[in-house]
């Protein structure tokens, strides 16, 4: 069996190779790629909540939006340091995670799903109404970002934003892969399978799930801040039900509970959307729908999950050297 550390290193190496490849092959699309990485963080955060903990959610964009608006409002009011803005996004997302998680986790199953939708719709409407601070439907503008570390300016081509996004995504993936394997992560995975069993082992399910929800909020908020930094505008779409639903689709495409699956799903979905919507602006959603059906039918554990299982089974079947 491949060790978890080896899997992590392989995964991170793949991300870095793709990042370098993207930089070399698509120099005109760096802004798009930076935006994709913000979405990767959103989908990874959903994986923490749904894939790892088993909490049904269609409202993850509320946390993403909290980070985006938190960082965006701070930047529009003179706090332009990108690292500080990432911190603000992380905290804003975590606080939003605490507030919404405290409500959502009181329910289970379909009621939980409905609660998550209600909360993202409420957040959307609140942001829309508070136009004096959020810009409402016109979007939040006037965001000024200082050079990263006082040296690397955020240019029109998005080079700085791109590498900052790559760095943040790599750090988050490394940390979360470790978190999911840590005792706390094991408990969360156990919670997904049997909350009663976890309770029988002396652990209260609610605080464990809430803690993970707050962490997921921080990750989503980080993604939102990254988007605010790279696009320098924050729109209502950052806190929409549509984005939440798309995040869930991306998670299903990639595979749940592995973190890397979420990143894979976001990458494939965003890339397909980018290519297909240019090739066929009218019917691209139909093609994306066909992809989703194909994945569910032929790779039920998602693209990453099914591939990882296939590789594992192949390794198990291969004759060992000592046989």
């Amino acid at each position: 069996m491949k060790s978890p550390l080896a899997s992590d290193l392989t995964g991170i190496a793949v991300v870095l190779v793709l990042a370098v490849g993207g930089f070399i092959l698509f120099p005109d699309n760096l802004a798009f790629l930076a935006g994709m990485m913000a979405v990767i963080l959103l989908v990874v955060s959903l994986d923490l909540v749904s894939g790892v903990c088993g909490v049904a959610s269609l409202g993850q964009a509320a946390l993403f939006g909290a980070g985006a608006y938190g960082a965006g409002i701070a930047a529009a009011n003179g706090l332009g340091d990108p690292l500080l803005l990432l911190g603000i996004g992380l905290v804003a997302g975590a606080v939003a995670g605490l507030a919404t998680g405290a409500i959502i986790l009181r329910a289970h199953g379909l009621p939980q799903l409905v609660l998550s939708i209600a909360l993202v719709e409420l957040a959307h409407e609140a942001v829309n109404k508070a136009s004096f601070i959020t810009g409402g439907s016109d979007g939040l503008t006037g965001i000024r970002i200082s050079p990263l570390l006082g040296v690397f300016a955020f240019d029109l081509w998005g080079v700085t934003a791109y590498w900052l996004s790559v760095a943040v995504v790599v750090v988050v993936l490394v940390v979360l892969r470790r978190l999911v394997r840590a005792p706390f992560g094991m408990l969360c995975r156990g919670l997904r399978q049997s909350p009663v069993r976890v309770a029988s082992l002396g652990q209260r399910a609610y605080p464990v799930a809430l803690k993970m929800y707050v962490i997921a909020g921080g990750v989503a908020g980080l993604g939102g801040a990254l988007r605010a930094i790279s696009t320098q505008v924050v729109g209502l779409d950052s806190v929409s039900f549509t984005l939440s639903a798309e995040a869930l689709v991306m998670l299903i495409v990639g595979g749940t509970g592995t973190i890397f699956g979420a990143a894979t799903g976001a990458f494939v979905f965003e890339w397909m959307e980018h290519i297909v919507s240019v090739a066929n602006p009218f019917h691209w959603l139909a093609i994306v729908g066909a992809l989703l059906i194909a994945v569910v039918l032929f790779a039920p554990h998602g693209l990453y999950g099914s591939t990882a299982r296939w590789l594992h089974e192949r390794r198990m079947r291969a004759p060992r050297a000592d046989e």
Binding site: M186, R189, G190, Q193, S194, V196, R197, V198, A199, S200, L201, G202, Q203, R204, A205, G257
Partner: peptide, 24 residues
Amino acid sequence: LPTSERARAGMGYVPQTRDIFPTL
């Protein structure tokens, strides 16, 4: 007390269904 608190108080329960975590 709820189940988790009883477990903390010292009670260990192995149910008929075993209830292991299958994906761990």
